[in-house]
Design a protein around this nucleic acid. Structure first.
Lengths: 212, 212
DNA sequence: TGTGTTTTAGTTCGACCGTTCTACAATGCA
DNA sequence: TGCATTGTAGAACGGTCGAACTAAAACACA
């Protein structure tokens, strides 16, 4: 027992996230991190280990604070609405951000994950969580009739995951509302159940209008 | 007059592409490039300028040799088939590549483009070309009835571009055939014209079966 | 064959990299 | 009030970075 930590670990990780998120792993120097977090090299190394380890912790903090939190919020909604809300949020955040940072996980997926097995696993695990969220939504939606059964839930979930990744890329390269919204809209329209089927029983209880 | 260049510029750019494509801009050192291209620092600097300029030329060479070439090949096909062929090729190349490099343009879009206006423009321009290819296909397909008119061609094109970007991300992070194919299939199914409409005139000349 | 230019092959440069070390201030408990 | 422990602060380390420089070798042309 001795002198307690004078800084808030979460706040430091948030600052580190800002660096890594914006410029990537390689382009972020320890001096950048020192300047941004406000504490010294010794404190950083003491509390978080080396640069790679700090990145790993920052990424985990990002995932828990942003992605997992968003999933938790959206899976509380009705299945179809949850999916729409997820994309709405991503769209809004992508357009709000003046730095056009996109998604830290997506950036990491292309940057560091392929050359670092541990990070690669962490990224793949997050993608799996998002995919699972989509799949659960689709399955529930298919069960209550709010989502089409014309395609397997697995494929629809994979498709949504792919669109999400694509939107995050476009958000960084060409952050334009029309482009991003246009990329998303067909994916949501795709979820709509087909027009009134001839089959009389098993009719969805909720009929939802077209249009996007 | 004087000693002619002993190396093939295209081959050197191809070697540089391999470096940048695989590890990204920052993580690739001039010494890596020297080792991979086989020529010396002086020759590299003399022929291509500094590292950034070499990257720019390598990226342009990549775009012309791979993407523009693919677009040219696919736009010669029937519209719906051209889109499918484009994705088929991307899928095949993504799964074939043992290094899982994805697409150099997508990687660059997240890595360097946001912090280099010239490169950012170059990347945005390529994305525009791909989007235009998709839009032209969709328009032609909507005209000949092979593609649905339920959504605007612009949005469908944006969606296809988004899916393409997403596939490239997933190809690098989780190169799994089921995942990639599953992400693509719904996007292609989405293009199918609606089932026989009640409206008698303006019926598509070609009716295409469902299934993916 | 001479002449001029460009390529090659190493070396070298200053800057910056991630990391560690040393000295010292701050704290909780005996 | 000591004392052990952990934080802070900044300098310093070896290494690697992108880039430039120095000669010597290779070639086309007159």
């Amino acid at each position: 027992m001795a002198r307690p930590r004078a800084f808030d670990e979460g706040a430091v990780l948030d600052a580190a996230i800002q660096c890594f998120w914006n410029r990537g792993y390689e382009a972020t120097s320890m001096r950048d991190l020192i300047a941004r977090t406000g504490l010294t090299a010794a404190s950083l190394y003491n509390a978080f280990g080396d640069k790679r380890s700090l990145f790993e912790k920052a990424l985990a903090h990002y995932v828990e604070g942003r992605i997992a939190e968003r999933i938790r919020r959206c899976e509380a909604l009705a299945p179809r609405a949850g999916i729409a809300a997820y994309f709405d949020e991503v769209l809004a955040r992508s357009l709000d951000d003046p730095e056009h940072k996109g998604c830290m996980v997506v950036n990491s997926a292309l940057d560091v994950a392929p050359h670092d097995p541990r990070l690669g696993e962490a990224v793949a695990e997050v993608l799996g969580r998002i995919e699972r969220f989509f799949r659960d939504c689709v399955r529930r939606g298919q069960a209550d009739g709010s989502i089409t059964t014309a395609m397997p839930a697995d494929d629809l979930a994979r498709h949504l995951l792919g669109v999400l990744m694509g939107v995050r890329v476009l958000a960084r390269a060409r952050p334009d509302r029309e482009l991003l919204a246009g990329a998303i809209a067909p994916a949501l329209a795709l979820l709509d159940p087909a027009a009134p089927e001839p089959d009389p029983d098993d009719t969805p209880m909720i009929s939802n209008p077209y249009g996007h």
